[in-house]
Amino acid sequence: MKSLVVGASAGLGRALTEELARRGHDLIILASDERDIAPLARNLMLSHSVTVETFAADLATLDPAKIRPGRDERFKDLDCLFLVAGVSHAADIGSMDQALLESLIAINFVGAARIVNALLDDLTFRPNGHIIGVGSVAAARARKSNIVYGASKRALEFYFAGIQHRLADAPCRVQFYRLGYMATQMLGDRKTLLPAASPEHVARVMVDRLGSPSGVRYLPGWWRWVMLIFRMLPWAIFRRLDV
């Protein structure tokens, strides 16, 4: 198996590379900074004896033509695509810097969609093909913080739903995860009402589910019930919540 992990340098992306390498996947790891992915690649190769290639690119400005299998041999015969990259910002609470707004949309949605688009034809008929996207519980219901982040993750989810429909009769599976709190740098030491999952645990579940049917899942699974209640809260109550 050969997997591409987009957003591999830290957090869930890095945990995924570790989990995939542990299970013998050859890897291409894509992130914005070569200084982060070069040591990661060496670590994976030494620890798990797999082949790991690096591709440094900023998701906001990535030229999709560069990753087309016809142009770059490294992206040929790919089985799994994991789109993990994502970014949020504390200033995402309404009026914000225009460049920041655009970069949030570019990284969380446009860049991810560009990559899927570039690799879709090759992945569609791969017998073990998987396209896996990572969203957030923040996209379940719009709220006054993480507005653009939530909206762009919602757009990505919608895009994945379309791709899933498009590939309904193809062997390639399309899986999308709505992730709850995760103990990564993005969360930091922020106190949360509900427990944060470790990226290693989330990565393990995602890799365990390779081969499972296409669809959308909450991770950890109990978030489904939390978000069900959250979505059903009447507006009169919801508008008073400081979330």
Binding site: G11, D33, T184
Partner: peptide, 9 residues
């Protein structure tokens, strides 16, 4: 104040 960097930059 504790900072746990995870990227070289």
């Amino acid at each position: 104040d504790v900072f746990e960097p995870d990227r070289y930059r």
